[in-house]
Write a protein that binds this DNA or RNA. Structure first.
Lengths: 296, 296
DNA sequence: GGCTTCTGGACAAGAGCTTGACAACTCGCG
DNA sequence: CGCGAGTTGTCAAGCTCTTGTCCAGAAGCC
């Protein structure tokens, strides 16, 4: 499925039939594509970009103006995720919820298998897994779901997500280091975020739950990533480490994700707050890092 | 089918159609091949390497950049492996340690892939993963390994083990419920134990880290397992819950695993102590439950 | 001894990058 | 109809990055 790796502009040109100059022009003028950059500054495109260029061309040959065609191509992209027909996301979600809450691992795995055969990882995350995790969290807070159910479900989802994560350290794109704040055990959102970045061509170094800040510092020195992301669900986790974060943000582009980032605790720390859902934030990060480039 | 001896670079070049200079360049730049060396320092390749070079060439002719093609070839390696040479467990373990401690996820995954093509899950656990985890724990205590290395390595190992665990709830065998004691975050040993039981035909219901005892109780009621296992590395975790365990042991065959079970805290609780290594204990549990049969 | 291989660096061709310009085209309007 | 203004595909110059190839001297192998 995402077996294809990233493409450089020449190859995208060949596959889409659009000259490199024009591809760059479309990017500059309409933001049609927003490729990740390699360490050397080369544009790296994903297979999804090939499709987007195709849509653009189709609209052009329908007689639309370039600006118009680009706008449509960009929107089509969003619609695409909203309408994978055949499968009704909420139905699948209910199905999954039912399986997980009945402690029925085989059935839950089967649902994942069936889904992955039809949709992209991103759709899986955005339409099924993340909404389900939210729902489960809410129900747990209301006392409608037991700790047992929450534990069981998390374990299975974690296993599947980590399975999808295989090989996410590989490739040419920019590198992101991902870790949970000290004391934080909720890692599923962070893994989802990593998968979303991966789908856009990034390389991921994943440290997991409850990581001391020094840990992130060490990796930053060794791998010089384009971005380090710390994640946490509660502000209490964040408060005590803000000074450390400020120091780290001095030498390393830094972001904090999850609900912990929501209330302006980070305001003058130099770290970016990513309090939205993982997929949206991955898209945002793309834009920022793409624009800003690397601070040497 | 294998048995083929090793190849020197000239021979590999002839078979793969890639010049020796280029093969060396690919090794240096992308780590595509990692040949063992003769005593004199000559590179010695296996037939599997021929295949890998072929994959690389195919990706190149698909128009991918060399660096990207190499990355994919390294991952694709997973799918079809021909002849993974003689595998000496300690050598592999060192290799794995090296990859994990260098934060090199792709290489670590490749090592797992190569291993799994030849050995059973049980061998993988017993000869490589568990010893490595022990070693890492020791080094970490001595200060020879950093927290970052420990986190990174755990994440990858956890991902792989959970991947192997897929579908372990399926089947007809006796059911075991597995959970970590409250507050306990070390789940790798428990997962390994689950895999060992699975290899013997059990069904596993896995609850994961930091599980309240009530959680286990709830599942026991709903699934009526043949055994429930709680795991922890330190006795401190165990002490406070002994009364609860005693109560639970009244209606449910119960065991406690990990170092926490070592000192006679459990003596009169009715719970079985499993303080040895996961695989040996899985074998022991088989014998016990096999003998005793199912209570009603 | 003759052929192969090793290391490490160097090199050149080609692909890509950015900035800025430019000509063909479309379109609204007097 | 002709004209200015905006749109859009293409091009160029000067640099950087990537990648296949080459070299020289030392050493291995049969």
């Amino acid at each position: 499925m995402d077996g294809d790796g990233v493409l450089r502009i020449g190859e995208l040109s060949k596959r889409s039939g659009v000259s490199p100059e024009l591809l760059r022009a479309w990017e500059r003028r309409y933001g049609l594509l927003r490729p990740v950059r390699s360490t050397g500054g080369l544009r790296l495109y994903t297979p999804a970009d090939v499709e987007r260029v195709r849509v653009m061309r189709r609209h052009l040959s329908d007689g639309l103006a370039a600006a118009e065609a680009a706008a449509l191509a960009l929107r089509a992209d969003a619609d695409d995720q909203a309408a994978p027909t055949a499968l009704r996301p909420d139905a699948v979600r209910d199905d999954l919820a039912d399986a997980l809450e009945g402690f029925d691992e085989p059935r839950a795995q089967a649902i994942f298998d069936r889904l992955l055969a039809v949709v992209t990882v991103e759709t899986l995350l955005g339409d099924v897994v993340l909404p389900y995790l939210h729902e489960l969290g809410d129900r747990w807070q209301r006392g409608d779901a037991s700790v047992a159910q929450e534990h069981f479900a998390s374990s299975i989802v974690r296993g599947r997500l980590l399975g999808l994560a295989r090989g996410w350290g590989l490739g040419l794109g920019p590198t992101a280091v991902l870790a949970c704040l000290p004391g934080e055990q909720h890692d599923l959102g962070l893994i989802a975020f990593g998968l979303a970045l991966r789908a856009r061509g990034w390389r991921i170094v994943y440290l997991g739950a409850d990581s001391p800040i020094e840990t992130v510092e060490e990796i930053s020195r060794r791998r010089d990533p384009s971005l380090a992301v710390l994640s946490g669900v509660s502000g209490e986790r964040l408060q005590p480490v803000v000074p450390q974060l400020r120091a780290l943000a001095g030498r390393q582009r830094l972001a904090v994700g999850g609900a912990a980032a929501a209330n302006g605790v980070l305001d003058d720390s130099g770290a970016l707050a990513l309090s939205g859902d993982p997929i949206a934030e991955a898209a945002r990060v793309m834009a920022l890092v793409g624009d800003g480039g690397e601070p040497s």
